[in-house]
């Protein structure tokens, strides 16, 4: 055993004849590796900067496209806007949340009008966003998409994002490039803690939905 170890030591320090010898001095190889690490690091950094820059430009372009559509939609009467939103299959309570008004206020708009200019624009904005997402990203059943959680890790939907003033994140989610965790973090940095639950919802033997601990 001792002789083996001794042999191994010899092999490392003095390669036997027939094995390839380094063609360059070790110092040069180290320099090459350093350069490679530096240049790839620089490339990654540039790539990240380009990605961020392109992302920001895309966001801006998407925002402008959305605003243009909003201006177009704003020409429609509020009642027609509401009818279209209803026809898409949105729940009125969700529409009220996204418009930041009460449910009875939306009911009044539907029955007797009285929509202010600001709320008319909000209605047009929502419909324009639906147009933008559905047409540009081929998303079907748009109301259903708005109600679908953006990730398995938290019950946050595009409706939640929009209702809390993050239309930009709705667009990001529709683009589908960013990791949903990034979107959730942009929405709420404490989302992991906020949505942690030791419970799960399941259908019980009587057919009703029930709640139980996850390890039950």
């Amino acid at each position: 055993m001792t002789s083996d170890r001794s042999g191994a030591t010899q092999t490392t320090s003095n390669p036997p004849d027939g094995l390839a010898q380094p063609t360059e001095p070790t110092v040069t190889l180290t320099n090459h590796l350093d350069n490679l690490i530096d240049s790839t690091g620089s490339l990654r950094s540039m790539g990240k900067q380009m990605s961020e820059s392109a992302g920001a430009r895309q966001q801006k372009a998407l925002f402008i496209a959305w605003q243009r559509r909003t201006n177009g939609r704003g020409k429609q009467a509020p009642k027609a806007l509401l009818e279209e939103i209803g026809n898409l299959g949105f729940a009125w309570r969700d529409v009220a949340r996204m418009m930041r008004v009460s449910v009875p206020a939306v009911q009044k708009w539907r029955r007797s009008g009285g929509v202010t200019g600001e709320n008319r624009r909000r209605l047009a904005s929502l419909l324009a966003l639906c147009d933008e997402i559905a047409e540009r990203y081929m998303i079907q059943e748009i109301a259903s998409w708005f109600e679908m959680p953006i990730s398995d890790q938290a019950p946050v939907t595009p409706i939640d994002l929009y209702a809390e003033g993050h239309a930009d994140l709705v667009l990001e989610h529709a683009v589908g490039i960013d990791d949903t965790e990034q979107i959730l973090t942009a929405y709420d940095t404490g989302w992991r803690e906020r949505f942690r639950s030791g419970f799960e919802v399941y259908q019980d033997h009587d057919g009703q939905m029930s709640i139980r601990p996850k390890d039950a």
Binding site: L88, A91, S144
Partner: peptide, 15 residues
């Protein structure tokens, strides 16, 4: 209505 993905369809059908 128990299926989140089908609720909007039921609303459309009701409309």
């Amino acid at each position: 209505l128990k299926d989140a993905g089908l609720r909007s369809t039921v609303r459309q059908q009701m409309g």
